[in-house]
Amino acid sequence: MALEPSDVQRAAHLARLAMNDADAAGYVDDLGRILAMVDQLQEVDTDGVAPLAHPLDTTQRLRADEVTEGDQRDHFQRVAPAVEDGLYLVPRVVE
């Protein structure tokens, strides 16, 4: 599956990475070769093989419904770039 600059631009936008055309051209080469390497997977016969998402065949453990976390807002917001009145600030979101 050949990679086009538009694929790179599209992925960059989905991943919210700034990317100008020159950057995209550079990535087309790198990513294209990585994907060519990845394409070797198509050689493997996987008919009837279930995908494996986790290396161990274990199942989800459930947590009791208890409130265990208190208010640590001030502590957590010490590392925040922009806060006011306890709120995280971002450029105006237009609905």
């Binding site: 009145d85 600030l89 450029p91």
Partner: peptide
């Protein structure tokens, strides 16, 4: 969306 100097606050 109240005005925080033109910013949006996130809760």
């Amino acid at each position: 969306h109240e005005d925080f100097h033109g910013m949006t606050g996130i809760d």
